[in-house]
Design a protein around this nucleic acid. Structure first.
Length: 346
DNA sequence: CTATGATA
DNA sequence: TATCATAGG
């Protein structure tokens, strides 16, 4: 999660018209953690219901899904399964970082620094299995498909895009590109000022990226491993620029790794995760109309959401999806080109 | 994060 | 109709 590729990718602006009718594989954990981080009050306290149970993830996934459906976009949500052994270090580091952030949050509150408090609180976000389970229940009630990956959700989403089951993956992280996703959509959220046609989301086309960088797919994996992934720490002194430069020398796998000073066994193990990730075949995705009764049961009855807000969001979603006809999936994810969109000056 | 209501 | 502040659970 969070490959530092910002400096080496050139995204294109993706107008909502190009997204309408298309199915995307949303990286569920990526989205849920974002909701937990951002849907908070001024002091950093997450939203919760009358019984103190967290609701930020439900608010986020409900409004994100209904607003995507209202825009004619069909989101299939993909969730992580069992993490690869190699991820253990990253997971431990994240837990420690959360503990530190929690202390800093309290410290900031104690001195009345609300801005810092909120920022630190965002870093403490904790997603539990029951929260994931209930999100899945909600998404089911909304009529959108959910997929539980055998291992990494990003790998599963990438495969679905490569198989043409979805048009693209949707995540803020670049990992799906290493897993072979032909297209990645970032910024699927920022649909603010896109009323008058101005695009909001960004598209990264993998083939185009490889051509631009002048590297192969395997060399892209190499760059990731050099800068560090969820599964390794990276080579000393290598950031995205230097890693790209080394990959562009096309020295071959073994020689490149030797140059970087990395442990070759470790590099091979991590490469294997990206080259042959554990995924499952998803035949087709079924979208249905939202079940208003079930959604109301979960959000209004169980968690005290405003019935009026839920009702109107559902109405927007169903009205739009009746109007927009789905763009049929294409085999091997390699259909019409999307030329002519503006490059985004990052 | 998105929706909503106030304001120009 | 567009922009801004803030409510939402």
């Amino acid at each position: 999660m969070g490959l530092p590729f910002k400096d080496i990718v050139t995204p294109r602006e993706l107008p909502w018209s190009a997204l309408s009718g298309r199915t995307v594989a949303v990286d569920g954990y990526n989205a849920l953690y974002q909701f937990l981080a951002t849907i908070r009050q001024a002091d950093g306290q997450p939203f919760s219901d009358a019984e103190g149970r967290p609701t930020s993830h439900l608010i986020g996934s409900f409004y994100r899904t209904t607003s995507l459906l209202a825009a004619g976009v069909r989101p299939a949500w993909v969730f992580d399964g069992k993490p690869p052994e190699r991820k253990a270090g990253t997971i431990r580091q994240r837990i420690e970082a959360k503990e530190r952030a929690g202390e800093q949050w309290q410290a900031a509150l104690a001195v009345g620094d609300l801005a810092t408090a909120r920022r630190r609180a965002a870093q403490t976000s904790h997603l539990t299995p029951p929260m994931v389970e209930e999100t899945n229940e909600l998404l089911g009630a909304l009529g959108v498909p959910t997929v539980r990956a055998p291992s990494e959700g990003e790998a599963q989403a990438a495969r679905m895009a490569a198989d043409g089951v979805v048009w693209a993956t949707a995540s803020e992280d670049y990992d799906t590109l290493l897993f072979g996703a032909p297209r990645l959509v970032r910024g699927l959220a920022a649909r603010r000022s896109s009323r008058a046609g101005a695009g909001a989301a960004q598209l990264i086309d993998r083939a185009e990226l490889l051509a631009q960088l002048g590297v192969s797919g395997d060399e892209l994996i190499m760059i990731g491993i050099l800068v560090g992934t969820d599964f390794n720490d990276g080579a000393r002194g290598y950031g995205p620029k230097k890693a790209l430069k080394l990959a562009q020398e096309h020295l071959g796998w073994a020689e490149t790794i030797a140059r970087s000073g990395m442990d070759p066994n470790e590099a091979d193990e991590v490469a294997e995760i990206f080259r042959h990730p554990s995924t499952t075949a998803v035949p087709s995705l079924e979208f249905r109309d939202p079940d208003a009764g079930r959604v109301t049961e979960i959000l209004v009855r169980r968690h005290g959401f405003s019935e009026e807000r839920v009702r109107s969001a559902l109405e927007r979603a169903t009205r739009a999806s009746a109007r927009v006809s789905p763009v049929p999936p294409s085999p091997r994810g390699r259909q019409q080109k999307l030329d002519g969109f503006e490059e985004v000056p990052s």
